[in-house]
Simulated assay, not measured.
Amino acid sequence: MSVSSPASPQAYIKHHLENLQVGSGFWTFNLDSLFFSIVLGVIFLWIFHRVAKKATSGVPSKLQCAVEMLFEFVNNTVKDMFTGQNKLIAPLALTVFTWVFLMNLMDLIPVDFLPYAAQYLGLSHLRVVPSADVSITMSMSLGVFILIIIYSIKYKGISGFIKEYTLHPFNHWAFAPINLILELVSLLAKPVSLGLRLFGNMYAGELIFILIAALLPWWSQWVLSLPWAIFHILIITLQAFIFMVLTIVYLAMASATEDH
Results as ranks from 00 to 15, higher is better:
Val3Thr: 12
Ser4His: 13
Ser5Tyr: 12
Ala7Leu: 14
Ser8Gly: 07
Ser8Asn: 06
Pro9Asn: 02
Pro9Thr: 07
Ala11Ile: 06
Lys14Ile: 05
Lys14Ala: 15
Lys14Glu: 15
His15Thr: 07
His16Thr: 02
His16Trp: 05
Asn19Pro: 06
Asn19Gly: 07
Leu20Gly: 06
Gln21Tyr: 08
Gly25Ile: 01
Phe26Asp: 13
Thr28Met: 04
Asn30Val: 00
Leu31Met: 06
Asp32Arg: 01
Ser33Asp: 06
Ser33Gln: 05
Leu34His: 08
Phe35Glu: 05
Val39Phe: 10
Leu40Phe: 03
Phe44His: 14
Phe44Trp: 13
Ile47Lys: 00
His49Lys: 13
Val51Gln: 07
Lys53Ser: 15
Lys53Pro: 09
Lys54Thr: 15
Ala55Asn: 05
Gly58Val: 07
Cys65Tyr: 12
Ala66Arg: 10
Glu68Pro: 05
Leu70Gln: 09
Phe73Ile: 07
Thr77Asp: 12
Thr77Val: 12
Lys79Asp: 15
Lys79Gly: 06
Met81Thr: 11
Met81Cys: 11
Phe82Arg: 00
Phe82Thr: 04
Gly84Asp: 02
Asn86Arg: 03
Asn86Met: 08
Leu88Lys: 09
Ala90Asn: 15
Ala90Asp: 13
Leu94Val: 12
Thr95Ala: 15
Thr95Ile: 15
Val96Phe: 08
Phe97Lys: 02
Phe97Ile: 05
Val100Cys: 12
Phe101His: 11
Met103Tyr: 12
Leu105Arg: 04
Asp107His: 13
Leu108Asp: 08
Leu108Ala: 10
Ile109Val: 13
Pro110Cys: 09
Asp112Ile: 09
Leu114Lys: 10
Pro115Gly: 04
Pro115Met: 02
Ala117Ile: 14
Ala118Phe: 09
Ala118Lys: 08
Gly122Leu: 04
Leu123Pro: 10
Leu123Gln: 10
Leu126Gln: 11
Arg127Pro: 03
Pro130Thr: 05
Ser131Gly: 04
Ala132Asp: 05
Ala132Glu: 05
Ala132Arg: 02
Asp133Tyr: 04
Val134Cys: 11
Val134Trp: 14
Ser135Glu: 11
Thr137Ser: 07
Thr137Val: 03
Ser139His: 05
Leu142Thr: 08
Val144Trp: 08
Phe145Trp: 10
Leu147Cys: 07
Ile149Phe: 03
Ile150Cys: 06
Tyr151Pro: 00
Ser152Thr: 10
Tyr155Phe: 01
Tyr155Glu: 00
Tyr155Leu: 00
Lys156His: 03
Phe161Met: 05
Glu164Tyr: 09
His168Met: 13
Asn171Ile: 03
Ala174Gln: 11
Phe175Met: 12
Pro177Trp: 06
Leu182His: 06
Ser186Val: 07
Leu187Ala: 15
Leu187Phe: 05
Lys190Arg: 15
Pro191Lys: 06
Val192Lys: 09
Leu194Lys: 09
Leu194Arg: 08
Leu196Ala: 09
Arg197Pro: 00
Gly200Tyr: 11
Phe209Val: 01
Ile212Pro: 00
Ala213Val: 03
Leu216Met: 14
Pro217Cys: 01
Trp218Lys: 14
Trp219Ile: 11
Trp219Pro: 10
Ser220Arg: 05
Ser220Gly: 06
Ser225Gly: 03
Ala229Arg: 10
Ala229Lys: 04
Ile233Glu: 01
Ile235Asp: 02
Thr237Trp: 09
Thr247Asn: 02
Ile248Asp: 01
Val249Lys: 10
Met253Val: 11
Ser255Leu: 03
Thr257His: 04
Glu258Phe: 10
Glu258Ser: 14
His260Ala: 09
